[in-house]
Design a protein around this nucleic acid. Structure first.
Length: 136
DNA sequence: GCCAACGTTGGC
DNA sequence: GCCAACGTTGGC
């Protein structure tokens, strides 16, 4: 099962908001690489929820609740959305500085392709981040 | 608020 | 189809 990472600015859509909403559609992706990742997501797969700009850390884990469908905010068939629901908050958030400080994570998309808003996470990277969060 | 990185656009 | 210019993202 693939692992993912999704980013959001807390001032636009925060983890707490997702918890409050129970479920949300991940809209507004206007980048082909990010779009391709959204399209590859399967129901039940897990994604790190990352706060950009403020916090700059992974705060929780979200689950794909509904696979991709046409973005209702545009008629352009190029763009699609995925529904997410919150799974759980990490015991301890993992900051970008923490990730950059670990040599094993130097190749993570978060470090290499900082601007990409929807990323894939390798299985071993997922495990390392969970350990850093005090989850294992 | 600055600036680096990167994606997209558009002229040729 | 190349590449310079421009816009946007996001860390610091």
């Amino acid at each position: 099962m693939a692992k993912w990472l999704i980013k959001s600015e807390p001032s636009v859509y925060s983890w707490d908001q997702l918890v409050k909403d129970k479920q949300t559609l991940w809209e507004g992706v206007r980048n082909y690489a990010a779009r391709n990742n959204l399209r590859a997501m399967k129901k039940g797969e897990e994604a790190f929820f990352y706060h950009s700009n403020e916090g700059v850390e992974i705060v929780g884990i979200a689950v794909v609740a509904k696979e991709h469908y046409q973005d209702p905010t545009t008629d352009d068939p190029n763009w699609l959305v995925v529904d997410f629901k919150p799974l759980r908050k990490l015991k301890k958030p993992v900051s970008l500085a923490d990730i950059k400080g670990d040599k094993r994570l130097a190749n993570m998309d978060l470090v290499r392709l900082g601007r990409l808003s929807v990323q894939t996470v390798k299985e071993e990277e997922w495990e390392i981040v969970l350990q850093m969060a005090g989850e294992k």
